[in-house]
Simulated assay, not measured.
Amino acid sequence: MMDHETAACAGCGILIQSEDAKQPGYAPPSALGRKVVICQRCYRIKHYNEVAPVSMGDDDFLRILDGIGATQSLVVMVVDIFDFQGSWLKGLPRFVGKNPILLVGNKVDLLPRNINLNRVRNWMQHEAKERGLRPEDVVLISAEKGLHIDELLARIGELRKGRDVYIVGVTNVGKSTMINRILHDYGAAELEITTSPFPGTTLDKIEIPLEDGRSIFDTPGIINRDQIGHMIPPADLRKITPRSRINSKVYQLDDGQSLFLGGLARIDFVHGPRQPFVIYVDNDLYIHRTKLEKADEVLEKHHGSLLVPPTGEEAAKALPPFVKHTFKIKPTGITTDVVISGLGWVSLQGKHDASIVVHAPKGVSVGIRKGLI
């Protein structure tokens, strides 16, 4: 039997304990004799798709990451390509020190088929530089589909130069899914890490030994609270999290029209010539077009029913009040994306002036960027 007093959960990394079922790391005594032990929370995530809240706060996650700068390691930062802004790990340079960084864009399988992946890599390099980060390289993968994992492993092997590897990122970018893909493809499936669509699944560093005596460390995801997914129930989170390739939706709008993205955001076209608004959100998210003069009335009457998610009157009431974000798009000839963190983005072609107002729940990050597509 393993020494459960010092054993870590193979799923989330938390220390195993069998004394208090209400505390993180609990595993029943009957499970302690197994070759691979996972805590009760991980067991319920794996088998019932449930997740229980834990008492770890942002400071606990930051403390775990804070020691990376003192090591000699390769840092692999994973971002969600579909939610690049929302999945960006702020302040990374102060965690990593002088260690090299490999930037990994996950969920490439969600992007439209006709997209140029070299352009996406260049775009990510540009966006990283704008945020003060100069990665050694950018690799695009799909951890879920197993796309380009060989390329990722090759670059890790070239860049780490005999050092440890730390995998970092915010919650729900697919870090643990990526590592599980590597473990499955290379014969260590018994070490499978717990994954779920819910934030905060990994609770401590998980160490995976390498053949040369070094290790890969999966670290907890930092919660970016400006993502809209942290403001809605888990059932609604599933409704805005893409699981298949995104099909853009094009709306030819006149000024004085509004678009509702479910009941989670509203886009008002206040002024400008008729032009296309190209929407990139989950394929099943309901989009409703109405006149700007009726938009307030529509929201008040249909929030939580026609305009879902949020689903239900109580969920709609629990959502923070909408605040306005005003943007003036100039005719530069360059596509501009208006991004709503955790939900998706709207592209304007940059051929005409456009004054728009985006309404989103208070605390959700809304901004513009150079067009991804």
Rank of each mutant, 00 (worst) to 15 (best):
M1W: 11
A7K: 03
A8Y: 10
C9W: 10
A21R: 05
G25F: 14
P28I: 03
S30I: 11
A31N: 06
A31V: 01
L32H: 05
G33P: 01
R34S: 07
I38P: 00
I38F: 10
C39F: 09
C42T: 03
Y43K: 09
V51Y: 10
P53F: 11
G67T: 11
Q72R: 14
L74G: 04
D80Y: 11
D83W: 14
L92W: 12
L92F: 07
V96G: 00
I101M: 14
G105D: 14
D109E: 14
L110M: 11
I115G: 02
I115Q: 08
W123S: 07
A128N: 03
K129G: 03
R131D: 05
R131W: 06
V138D: 12
I141H: 06
G146P: 12
L147P: 00
I149D: 13
L152G: 08
G157R: 10
E158H: 06
G162L: 08
R163E: 15
V170H: 11
N172I: 05
N172G: 06
T177H: 09
R181N: 12
G200L: 09
T201F: 11
D204R: 02
R214L: 05
T219P: 06
G221F: 14
G221S: 12
R225W: 15
D226W: 12
G229K: 10
M231G: 00
P233L: 13
A235H: 10
A235D: 15
R238W: 14
K239N: 09
T241L: 10
I246K: 02
Q252I: 08
D255G: 01
D255K: 04
G256Q: 08
S258P: 00
H271L: 09
G272I: 04
Q275K: 05
I279H: 01
D282G: 08
N283W: 15
N283V: 11
D284V: 01
D284E: 14
L285G: 01
E300M: 04
H303S: 09
G304V: 02
K317H: 07
A318P: 00
P321C: 02
P321D: 15
K324M: 09
T326A: 07
G333L: 09
D337R: 02
W345H: 12
V346I: 15
Q349P: 00
A354I: 07
P361C: 04
V364L: 07
G367V: 02
K370A: 09
G371C: 08
L372W: 08
